[in-house]
Nucleic acid binder design. Structure first.
Length: 275
DNA sequence: CTGTTAACCTGAGTGC
DNA sequence: TGCACTCAGGTTAACA
């Protein structure tokens, strides 16, 4: 479900609710996520106060008062729900895998039908986390630029769409936003990364930032089940030019949008606007 | 090193 | 209704 804008939307939603609250109790109903939630997790998180809600790529990083951190990844279908215990006190539903009961009657609940997500401890004594070591730059960082993409892509035969979706190249561009960025930059998704010109990468880097930025402003893209922490839908889907629009007319030139599979993922593009 | 593929898992939708 | 099949916002591990 979530690419960078959705994770950022969740992060912003969480800040208002969980910051400065103590974690009273942790319940792990099903530890079988992308990686097992370790047995030690409850002890690790309990009695700690939340002092920060950060993000790196698509990972949420919940900072605790002893400098330990909780890593959360939403995978494809993960959701984090902020529930008011006193008013709803809903019993756990199917796929409600992890609960963090916070002080003053708030419940942070991790729900994930496909279990591609993750909830992991990240102890303070471990400076870097193995899952983040090889991670590429944030799209809004100085480091990320057309030159950066150009230099890194020389000699690479992989499709440019796979290239920008590779988290080691740049974080945050998933299947939707990669397609939308490539459309706005006028580049076909299947084009070899090594054949994309410097000028094209300059435009692409700009469009990636533009698309991600607009999506964050719109509260993310809601296709099936994305909702912010408070259950609000995102609205960026109304601004999608190509994603999920196979055979529909291009919003710019009316040519039918094409769908092709690249790297096992559906890829959408306009054969006339993109070359 | 680069590139490709299978795999992890459940649910929704479609066509017969 | 039921069944078989395809597809889905992510990422890693294993292979060539």
């Amino acid at each position: 479900m979530p690419e960078l804008p959705e994770v950022e939307t969740v992060r912003r939603g969480l800040i208002a609710h969980i910051l400065d609250r103590r974690i009273e109790r942790v319940t792990v109903r099903d530890a079988r996520l992308r990686w097992r939630v370790p047995k030690s997790f409850a002890t690790f998180a309990q009695k700690r106060r939340v002092v920060d809600v950060g993000r790196r790529g698509k990972y949420l990083i919940i900072g605790l008062d002893n400098a330990d951190r909780i890593l959360i990844h939403l995978g494809m279908t993960g959701r984090l729900l902020v529930l008011d215990v006193s008013d709803s006190a809903r019993p756990a539903q199917k796929h409600d895998h992890v609960d963090l009961l916070l002080e003053r009657g708030l419940l942070l609940r991790f729900h994930d039908p496909r279990r591609f997500g993750a909830v992991l401890p990240w102890p303070a004594k471990e400076t870097s986390h193995p899952l983040m070591e090889a991670m590429g730059p944030e799209p809004f960082s100085e480091e990320f630029s057309g030159d950066y993409l150009f230099n890194l892509s020389r000699g690479r035969s992989a499709a440019v769409k796979n290239f920008v979706m590779d988290g080691r190249v740049v974080v945050g561009a998933g299947n939707i936003y990669a397609a939308e960025s490539l459309f706005r930059a006028g580049i076909r998704p299947g084009k070899a990364a090594g054949k994309v010109t410097r000028a094209q990468f300059e435009l692409l880097a700009e469009k990636i930032r533009e698309v991600l930025g607009e999506a964050i402003e719109q509260g993310g893209t809601t296709l099936r089940d994305f909702a912010s922490a408070m259950g609000e839908a995102g609205y960026f889907q109304q601004k999608l030019f190509v994603y999920g629009r196979e055979a529909e007319p291009c919003l710019v030139c009316k040519s039918p949008i094409r769908r092709v599979v690249i790297g096992q993922r559906s890829s959408y593009y306009c054969p006339s606007c993109q070359s």
